[in-house]
Computed example of a mutant assay.
Amino acid sequence: MTKSVRMTVFALLAVVAVILGLTFNKFTQSPPLDRETLRDSGVFIFETPRTFSMAPLVNHENQSFSADNMKDHWTLLYFGFTYCPDVCPTTLAKLNELSLELQELNSELAKRFKVVMVTVDPQRDNPAKLANYVPFFNRDFVGVTGDMANIYELTRQLNVAFTTVGDTTKDDYLVEHSANVVLVNPKGDYHGFIRPPLVAVQLAKNLQAVDRGF
């Protein structure tokens, strides 16, 4: 084999190696974060995450819960109440399904997502009440309560609406509230939100894309 032929063969082999490498990357690397596609499935990601502040609240173990508790991991923040007849238990059950799907998809990914329910009914939802309710859906879920003024200020910043319906001097009043799940990124910023219905299998894949694009 002449020198020129050998050089031609080596050049062709190099080209083939590049093509194979590009093909491998195409099938093994996650696709770029596509906000429009995510939006179509109910996941809304802001172009620029929004900062917010919060006065300390307390979790269902009666320990302080502050903004620092939502750093270094993703937080799926849901606002509801334990007396909720339908939406809240359904949402928490779906978030539990999501946790199981994330675990199935990638155990390390699952560790990076925490679920927190902040009550919009602190008059009835004290730590003990939350402790009997929130961990029922998943023992790793955290329930949070505290002063109503502090909760209201937090919901205002996170675009979560709620209003009390009925006589609050009786124990059968309800609270109408947004059903969106707020997404807080590992820096502790308001990253976006998720609209129901929550389809666990698809949402797990979407959150994987969000995590990889962070």
Rank of each mutant, 00 (worst) to 15 (best):
R6K: 10
G21D: 04
N25R: 12
K26A: 12
P31R: 15
P32Q: 07
D34F: 07
D34G: 08
D34H: 09
R35P: 05
E36R: 05
T48H: 09
T48W: 01
R50M: 13
M54P: 03
P56K: 06
N62D: 15
Q63G: 02
F65A: 02
S66A: 09
A67C: 09
A67Y: 09
N69Y: 00
M70Q: 02
H73R: 06
G80L: 03
F81N: 11
C84Y: 00
D86C: 10
C88F: 07
P89N: 00
L95N: 02
N96E: 10
L98Y: 01
L102I: 03
Q103N: 14
L105I: 01
V118H: 04
V118D: 01
R124Y: 10
D125H: 01
N132M: 10
Y133L: 03
P135N: 10
F137A: 05
T145W: 07
G146K: 08
A149W: 02
T155D: 06
R156S: 14
N159A: 14
T163W: 02
T164I: 01
V165I: 15
K170D: 13
Y173D: 12
V175N: 03
H177T: 10
V181Q: 07
Y190A: 03
I194W: 00
I194C: 04
P196E: 07
P196C: 06
P197G: 04
V201E: 15
Q208L: 14
D211E: 15
